[in-house]
Simulated assay, not measured.
Amino acid sequence: MPLDAARRELGSERLTAHEARQRLEHERDSRLVQLTAIDEAGPETNDHVMAVQIDALQRVLREIDAAFRRIEDGTYGTCQDCAQPIPVERLEILPYARCCVGCQRRIT
């Protein structure tokens, strides 16, 4: 079921596809600004800590891209483990979340 239809059916318990895209675009833009700032800091600051930070930022960017794909295929907002809806509050905080909090705790 598309996000927009799900939102109409469930009231305000789900993000619309538009809202989800906006949140994901904001997250992606923020991470890209951070990567640019690291790059502009120059090679002398690219020590181990910076390498770890770059890796983490790139990992989040991959998660964001995956969330965009979930919007397109209609699975965004559904836990990939238990198949239950991910609470909108979680998606507002972490719009690229793949799992609900309970399943995420079991995974990590």
Rank of each mutant, 00 (worst) to 15 (best):
M1R: 09
P2K: 11
P2H: 07
L3Y: 11
L3S: 14
A6L: 11
A6D: 00
R7Q: 15
R8M: 12
L10A: 15
G11F: 10
A17L: 11
H18A: 15
H18V: 05
H18E: 15
H18C: 03
E19D: 10
E19N: 09
A20S: 05
A20V: 03
R21K: 11
Q22I: 07
Q22H: 09
Q22C: 07
R23V: 03
L24I: 07
E25L: 11
R28L: 11
S30K: 15
L35K: 01
T36D: 10
A37H: 04
I38A: 08
I38P: 10
D39V: 04
A41W: 10
G42I: 11
E44T: 13
T45P: 00
N46F: 11
H48Y: 13
V49L: 09
V49T: 11
A51I: 04
D55G: 08
A56N: 14
Q58N: 13
V60R: 12
L61D: 04
E63P: 09
D65L: 11
R70N: 07
R70L: 02
I71P: 12
D73C: 07
D73S: 03
G74A: 07
G74K: 10
Y76D: 07
Y76L: 00
G77W: 03
C79V: 06
Q80E: 14
C82P: 08
A83F: 06
A83I: 00
Q84P: 00
P85I: 06
V88M: 03
V88F: 06
E89G: 06
R90Q: 09
L91C: 02
L91W: 05
L94M: 09
L94S: 04
C99M: 15
C99D: 07
V101P: 01
G102E: 08
R105I: 12
I107M: 11
T108F: 06
